[in-house]
Amino acid sequence: MVENNSWSRFVTHCILILGVALVVFPVYLAVIASTHEAGTFLSGTLPLLPGSQGLENYKQVLFEGRSRAGTPPLHTMLWNSFVMAMTITIGKLLVSLLSAFAIVYFRFPFRMFFFWVIFLTLMLPVEVRIVPTFQVVADLGMLNSFAGLSIPLIASATATFLFRQFFMTIPEEMLEAARVDGAGPMKFFKDILLPLSITNIAALFVIMFIYGWNQYLWPLLITTDPEYYTIVMGIQRMVTGADAEPLWHLVMATVVLAALPPILVILFMQRLFVKGLTETEK
């Protein structure tokens, strides 16, 4: 039968542990580097064990920032990232739930046309239409604002399709029963569709929060005011802002703080994350 002796299991574990170590290694190094003082990096080789400056480094990046390089304290950037990620996530969910509801539960002229308009967003990632999109946002006076950071990103074809598919699986009898009881469309949406969709909403929430938090190019373009920097794009300013070699201990403390929130979201909501990932892409 299929081999499953202890020797082959041992080899499997060995390779996997080595592989996991390799995958974890870059982040381990970042955590280590963030606990040393500036002097350590001048001596040439990088230490592999933690230093003693951790608390001081994190305190410095969180509350003082580096005024010379023009980057604000990290607590501002973390807050900005959080607001942007939450607005994008909630916006996307709301907008897609409503559109999917309209497409599945109503018959009206131009239904297919609207469906294709939404579908188009799949084919036009920000990266391919950078300059004209920037012009639109600038013309609307939305540079350096939370509205500019989030609203242009809240259309979502994938979420709309997912909700459409899910709504199609809800038995017809639900609607019939609701109508017999005299519920209007919005009451049906609020009291029946939303509660039924809660797992799907939660799964998409995880995926979209990560998407929103990790936005890079977009905030880079439309924020020139450090007050609105988000943490992921702010790091780049720290690496290239100064002429000299970057202050690695502070950069790495920032990297750790920037990566931590989405990583925690994945680790604590792993099941929802996997569900969201596999269902949005199909």
Binding site: V95, S99, F114, V136, L140, I151
Partner: peptide, 16 residues
Amino acid sequence: LLAPQVIVTLIFFVWP
């Protein structure tokens, strides 16, 4: 119901 999604799409995707 479709308006928010379609408006965002038209202004920030289709027009650019």
